[in-house]
Design a protein around this nucleic acid. Structure first.
Lengths: 208, 208
DNA sequence: TAAAAGATATGACAAATGTCACTTACATTC
DNA sequence: GAATGTAAGTGACATTTGTCATATCTTTTA
């Protein structure tokens, strides 16, 4: 199996190289230390698996992977992650990356590579458990950025549960007229027409 | 690595046994041919990985896995699937199963087992690509079962896009009054009060 | 063929909704 | 202390919405 490694931490990439070459049947064809090298090295060596850090300086692993897959849709890319890389995971999944494995997990590395070579997708450790939550977050809308206050947001949530103004008033101990006023400004801020559009907006932007 | 195999097709389980035992470091501790045997064999042998068919006669692999994991939350279960087992996949994911691999994929089997033993999760072939779609379907509501007709459902979808009755009428070439009537019966059938609750219902039951 | 069922439509009505102009009360700031 | 800002409220108004009774026309069924 031919592997190309890309990681901007030379200590990591060298350790990986050592580990991999001690295994039979694996050749490390090249080691790059920047996402910008990914496409070039992939083209030159056509490795079975491209093992790449997801968080790097000049170009993130995700961007690099996107370029490689654009040219070679069947490229098998395995990301190295730490626990703090949540933000990239969904994006990477959409691109069609073949897996994520924790940097710390030396024992798991070789079986993971082999599984990926066989066309499978591998998720290290507890990453799978995080997926449902991440999928939602990735869609979530930044109401604060549109100038929606906390109280307004509370009302949005109640509308998005299908409550009438009267019911919302009862729940919040405000008058029905006040609810109407709040709702009116919310609709304007979000450029919507009525409460139904608000509920639709809510659910199409990550609400549940 | 100790493995227990469960598959109600003896031809399959025996082939698997042969393949696995030809590999160094793998012992097949037991072979069961029914989901009901899963928990017993797991308790007796405590394998590193439980390799189980997902579709079986008396008890599905999913049910069997649920029982095993209830007793042994860290149990590593790898499912054998065919392309037609979509319906079980989401359910199995929720239980905390460690992967799915296609029965046909003999080469991938051993690396997959090793990756699972190392604590990773493995998805064979194109299963990952199906996940987003399946996640949605798993939530989807059976409008037909509530007596919703096709035309009514069309209107539900338009309401769930935030359109007014007038707009829906224009789109469907029906009169606004007719739309109101349709909507009225839809609300009754689903036991809802107004269009906003309908939109909420739609999105909370698998719509997008 | 007659009756039943289905699709579409109308008009009337009450309730809910969204907008607007304006007020009151309280706290913060200058 | 006056000015400003914010939170909450009121009343009026036009629209939209949901319900209901009823009508017309077509298709299916008995």
């Amino acid at each position: 199996m031919k592997v190309v490694i890309i990681d901007d931490d030379k200590l990591v990439s060298m350790s990986l190289k050592t580990i991999l070459e001690s295994a039979t049947g694996i050749t490390v064809e090249a080691v790059g230390n920047d996402g910008t090298e990914a496409l070039g090295l992939y083209e030159k060596h056509r490795p079975d698996v491209l093992l790449m850090d997801i968080r790097m300086e000049h170009m993130t692993g995700v961007e690099a992977a996107r370029k490689v897959i654009a040219e070679y849709p069947d490229a098998k890319i395995l990301f190295l992650t730490t626990f703090s890389d949540d933000e990239y995971i969904i994006e990477a999944l959409e691109i069609g990356v073949r897996g994520y494995i924790l940097k710390q997990d030396f024992e798991g590395l070789i079986p993971a590579l082999e599984a990926v070579q066989q066309g499978q997708t591998v998720f290290g450790g507890k990453i799978v458990g995080k997926l449902p939550g991440l999928l939602q977050e990735s869609l979530s809308f930044d109401y604060e950025a549109k100038g929606i206050t906390q109280k307004e947001y509370d009302i949005i949530q109640l509308v998005a549960q299908g409550l009438s103004n009267k019911e919302i008033a009862a729940k919040t101990f405000l008058s029905e007229g006040t609810i109407r006023n709040y709702l009116s400004t919310v609709l304007e801020k979000l450029d919507l027409r009525d409460r139904t559009q608000l509920a639709v907006f809510y659910y199409q932007n990550g609400g549940r």
